[in-house]
Design a protein around this nucleic acid. Sequence first.
DNA 1: GCTTGACTTAGAGTTAACTCTAACTTGTAC
DNA 2: GTACAAGTTAGAGTTAACTCTAAGTCAAGC
Lengths: 121, 121
Amino acid sequence: MNMKEFSEVTGLSAHTIRYYEKIGLLRHIERTKSGHRTFSKNDLVWIEFITRLKQTGMPLQQILKYADLREKGNSTAIARMDLLKHHSEALEEKLRQETQHLKKLKEKIEYYENLILSQNA
Amino acid sequence: MNMKEFSEVTGLSAHTIRYYEKIGLLRHIERTKSGHRTFSKNDLVWIEFITRLKQTGMPLQQILKYADLREKGNSTAIARMDLLKHHSEALEEKLRQETQHLKKLKEKIEYYENLILSQNA
DNA sequence: GCTTGACTTAGAGTTAACTCTAACTTGTAC
DNA sequence: GTACAAGTTAGAGTTAACTCTAAGTCAAGC
């Protein structure tokens, strides 16, 4: 898969993909003999995982730590699992808070609805 | 309420509070004759609302739009309600996605748990 | 073989949201 | 009345995560 295609399927710009490689989120990307990147199915799976972590609010620095552990092989399985466990707990807490915020927002919307009804009465 | 107290109850630094005033998120903050800010109960309610919007991912620019509408009085009630409705819909969608992400994360954690069990067997 | 679009790099620029600094003034506890 | 903590301003600096630029090389269709 060339850069264009990879960019399209991941939804990330070529700039962003190169940036991710530069900071070490993507590693060992194959190259053609002329120097162009060639992305594999594995690269795709990995970047989708990165995207998932990112979309749940994990900063790239911490994703990088996961990438470092992954690089070191099987012996780091427990450390990686711990990292994911912490993150999923934080995410659960965030979900609880956001749910609470949503409820309050809806109450405020309802307040506006009543206000507007009474203005038109 | 002076700056120190307001900072403590809101959990925001004095720097951040002044910054919020500078960009127009906080307006008409009273001053003592010597120039020190004095925050009211109203200011507190308003900043808690700002914080809620912020914590659900609304950028300050958009919160500022809400503040502008609020400034203009009752005639903007519908516009403000619309803004909140859009945001609460976006938030609902975000919650759905995060819930999905959480599920996948937990699956991955379970995968690690099994892996580690089999390594120790 | 030439055009046009895609690719490469190093490094500069941008944006949001703070965060800090310097230089100074005010308030409060002894 | 003197420390010292807390307040003020304008403006500079920081951080994360891109995003773009310049200057060039490569690939594919005609």
